Computed example of a mutant assay.
Amino acid sequence: MTSSENDPVICSAKGCRASAEWVLAWNNPKLHTPDRRKTWLACSEHREHLSQFLGVRGFLKDVVALGDWQDAEQRPSAG
Protein backbone atom coordinates (compact mmCIF):
# COMPACT_ATOMS: atom_id res chain seq x y z
CA MET A 1 0.00 0.00 0.00
CA THR A 2 1.59 3.21 -1.11
CA SER A 3 0.20 6.72 -1.05
CA SER A 4 1.49 10.18 -0.41
CA GLU A 5 0.61 11.94 2.83
CA ASN A 6 -1.82 14.19 0.94
CA ASP A 7 -3.78 11.41 -0.76
CA PRO A 8 -7.05 10.50 0.94
CA VAL A 9 -7.19 6.91 2.17
CA ILE A 10 -10.60 5.67 1.04
CA CYS A 11 -12.47 2.43 1.77
CA SER A 12 -12.19 -0.23 -0.95
CA ALA A 13 -15.88 -1.21 -0.76
CA LYS A 14 -17.72 -0.51 -4.00
CA GLY A 15 -19.24 2.96 -3.96
CA CYS A 16 -17.92 3.85 -0.50
CA ARG A 17 -16.11 7.18 -0.16
CA ALA A 18 -15.54 6.99 3.61
CA SER A 19 -12.10 7.26 5.12
CA ALA A 20 -10.40 3.93 5.65
CA GLU A 21 -9.58 2.85 9.19
CA TRP A 22 -8.50 -0.76 8.56
CA VAL A 23 -6.11 -2.64 6.29
CA LEU A 24 -7.15 -6.13 5.17
CA ALA A 25 -4.05 -8.04 4.09
CA TRP A 26 -4.74 -10.95 1.77
CA ASN A 27 -3.34 -13.18 -0.90
CA ASN A 28 -4.71 -15.61 -3.46
CA PRO A 29 -2.58 -18.75 -3.11
CA LYS A 30 -3.30 -19.68 -6.74
CA LEU A 31 -1.72 -16.42 -7.92
CA HIS A 32 0.65 -15.16 -5.21
CA THR A 33 3.64 -16.53 -3.36
CA PRO A 34 2.86 -17.29 0.34
CA ASP A 35 4.68 -14.17 1.59
CA ARG A 36 2.97 -11.77 -0.84
CA ARG A 37 0.33 -9.47 0.68
CA LYS A 38 -2.23 -7.50 -1.29
CA THR A 39 -4.27 -4.94 0.64
CA TRP A 40 -7.80 -3.65 0.72
CA LEU A 41 -8.76 -0.68 2.85
CA ALA A 42 -11.95 -0.60 4.89
CA CYS A 43 -13.99 1.88 6.86
CA SER A 44 -15.54 0.63 10.09
CA GLU A 45 -18.88 0.01 8.35
CA HIS A 46 -17.39 -2.27 5.66
CA ARG A 47 -14.63 -4.00 7.62
CA GLU A 48 -16.71 -7.09 8.47
CA HIS A 49 -18.24 -7.43 5.00
CA LEU A 50 -14.89 -7.21 3.21
CA SER A 51 -13.26 -9.53 5.76
CA GLN A 52 -15.99 -12.12 5.20
CA PHE A 53 -15.67 -11.84 1.42
CA LEU A 54 -11.94 -12.57 1.60
CA GLY A 55 -12.25 -15.09 4.45
CA VAL A 56 -14.81 -17.31 2.69
CA ARG A 57 -12.32 -17.66 -0.18
CA GLY A 58 -9.42 -18.41 2.17
CA PHE A 59 -7.60 -15.23 1.12
CA LEU A 60 -7.70 -13.14 4.31
CA LYS A 61 -4.39 -13.17 6.21
CA ASP A 62 -4.66 -10.24 8.64
CA VAL A 63 -6.77 -7.23 9.64
CA VAL A 64 -4.77 -4.33 11.07
CA ALA A 65 -5.66 -0.79 12.11
CA LEU A 66 -4.53 1.61 9.38
CA GLY A 67 -2.27 3.56 11.76
CA ASP A 68 -0.51 0.39 12.92
CA TRP A 69 -0.02 -0.76 9.30
CA GLN A 70 1.47 2.60 8.31
CA ASP A 71 3.78 2.57 11.36
CA ALA A 72 4.99 -0.93 10.43
CA GLU A 73 5.67 0.12 6.82
CA GLN A 74 7.84 3.01 7.99
CA ARG A 75 9.99 0.92 10.33
CA PRO A 76 13.30 -0.24 8.88
CA SER A 77 13.27 -3.97 8.20
CA ALA A 78 15.63 -6.18 10.17
CA GLY A 79 18.21 -8.17 8.27
Rank of each mutant, 00 (worst) to 15 (best):
L54E: 07
L24M: 08
G67V: 06
H46Y: 06
P76C: 02
T33R: 12
L54M: 08
N28P: 03
F53S: 07
Q70N: 14
G67H: 06
A42Q: 07
W22R: 07
D71P: 00
A13K: 12
G15L: 01
P34C: 08
Q74F: 02
E45I: 14
G79T: 05
R37A: 05
E45C: 05
I10Y: 06
T2Q: 11
H32S: 10
S44Y: 02
G15C: 01
V64T: 15
A25C: 07
G79R: 07
T39K: 11
R36F: 15
H46T: 04
K61T: 08
E21G: 10
E45Q: 15
K14Y: 05
S77H: 09
M1Q: 09
F53N: 11
G55I: 01
Q52G: 08
W22P: 10
S3D: 13
W26T: 01
W22L: 02
R47W: 00
C16P: 04
A72L: 13
G79K: 02
L66W: 06
T33N: 04
D35W: 09
V9W: 09
D35E: 13
N27Y: 14
L50F: 09
W22Y: 12
E48S: 13
T2S: 13
P34F: 09
M1T: 07
T2G: 13
F59T: 04
S19C: 06
P29T: 04
V64I: 15
Q74M: 11
P29H: 03
S44G: 14
N6Q: 12
S4V: 02
K30R: 11
T39W: 08
S19M: 03
S4T: 15
S44R: 13
A65W: 01
S4R: 12
G15R: 05
H32M: 06
L66D: 08
E48T: 12
Q52T: 06
C43T: 04
P76F: 00
G67L: 03
A20G: 13
V64P: 07
C11G: 09
V64R: 13
Q74I: 02
R36K: 10
W26C: 01
W40C: 07
C43Y: 02
G79Q: 10
S3P: 04
P8H: 06
G15A: 00
P29K: 10
A78W: 09
N28C: 06
A72M: 11
V9Q: 13
R37S: 05
A18R: 14
N28H: 07
K61C: 10
D35A: 12
I10D: 03
F53M: 11
L54H: 10
L66H: 02
L54W: 05
G58H: 11
R36E: 12
W22S: 05
C11M: 07
G55L: 02
G15M: 01
L41C: 03
A20F: 01
A42C: 08
K38D: 11
F59E: 09
N6C: 07
A25N: 09
S51R: 06
V23M: 12
D35Y: 06
T33G: 04
G67F: 01
V23N: 08
V63W: 00
R36W: 05
G58P: 03
S51C: 13
E48M: 04
A25R: 14
K30W: 06
T39V: 12
A13I: 00
S19Q: 12
K38N: 15
R17Y: 00
I10S: 04
W22K: 04
E21V: 05
T33L: 02
S44P: 03
L31S: 03
